[in-house]
């Protein structure tokens, strides 16, 4: 257990409302039978004294793509970084409320942060390969998680690179430095690195923010393939992208969840006036 791993972060003081199985909020008819992968109940998140997220309830469904949209600074990145406890790295932050992964509270005192991070992978805004070779980048996650068998390791590196649709382009130079790849390739490498440790959920934090349109399209295609096997959460400020790739969309504004529902419905008949204004470009 890596209990004392991040001493800066104050733990949630009380085991706020362990009411699972909790009532799903805003549940629409077509989601009733869906398996919930991540359950978020009544959370508030603070940086120091300022509240970044306020009273959010939400479900992330298994094998679906959930998009978070909203103007910049609305808290969408902060929100998904809670799912793999990445915010623990930031000093003076506090979380109230409950977040469950497969019905288990990931912020409970017995939770193994390191294992949670393996199960909930993350792809960052800016491609962040290590200054190592392509192979080493992908193998890194396997090694730190205790896989030493060389054959198994190689097989899974190749497999992951194939899954990330990168293998064909780089198969002759997997021992070259990852920093020599193009931005789009680097981002797919980061996806491969994430896939290698076999996560259940993958968080994408604006994965295309620094990419050109062609690379962006490749990543979007990849997302659609990946949802067959993974639960995907993607933060994007690009509404078209959300519409293209996601099954569910959440609209956040000023740290609040304004609307959450099936993408098609949310984009065509938003229930909330603010959502409508945002979608039609009236603000943001």
């Amino acid at each position: 257990m890596d209990k004392q791993a991040f001493p800066h972060t104050a733990r949630r003081p009380q085991s706020a409302g362990r009411q699972s199985p909790a009532q799903s909020p805003q549940k629409t008819d077509d989601t009733r039978d869906m398996a919930v992968r991540i359950r978020v109940r009544n959370i508030d998140f603070y940086y120091g004294n300022s509240r970044a997220l306020e009273k959010i309830d939400m479900d992330i469904y298994k094998n679906r793509v959930t998009a978070m949209i909203g103007p910049s600074g609305c808290g969408k990145s902060t929100f998904i970084r809670l799912f793999n406890r990445m915010n623990d790295l930031i000093p003076h932050t506090r979380l109230d409320g409950l977040i469950e992964l497969d019905n288990r509270d990931i912020y409970s005192s017995g939770a193994d942060v390191v294992d949670i991070r393996r199960r909930v992978g993350m792809v960052f805004q800016k491609p962040n390969p290590f200054p190592k070779s392509i192979f080493e980048n992908v193998a890194y996650g396997l090694e730190v998680n205790g896989i030493r068998n060389k054959k198994l390791k190689e097989a899974r590196v190749v497999d992951s690179l194939k899954k990330a649709a990168l293998w064909e382009e780089i198969k002759d130079r997997i021992h070259e430095s990852a920093l020599r790849l193009s931005g789009g390739q680097q981002q797919r490498l980061c996806i491969a690195r994430c896939l290698a440790v076999d996560p259940e959920v993958i968080l994408f934090d604006e994965p295309c923010a620094s990419l050109d349109p062609i690379s962006t399209r490749k990543i979007e295609e990849l997302l659609l393939e990946l949802k067959e096997s993974y639960t995907i959460v993607i933060v994007t400020h690009n509404m078209q992208q959300a519409a293209r790739v996601s099954d569910y969309t959440a609209f956040l504004y000023m740290g609040k969840l304004i609307e959450f529902g099936e993408t098609q419905k949310l984009f065509t008949v938003p229930r909330n006036k603010m959502t409508e204004e945002y979608l039609t470009g009236k603000f943001g």
């Binding site: 390191v114 991070r117 199960r119 993350m122 390969p129 290590f130 890194y140 290698a196 440790v197």
Partner: peptide, 11 residues
Amino acid sequence: FREASFAVGAN
């Protein structure tokens, strides 16, 4: 770099 490493489950 640190974030990337933590994100794949390194301690």
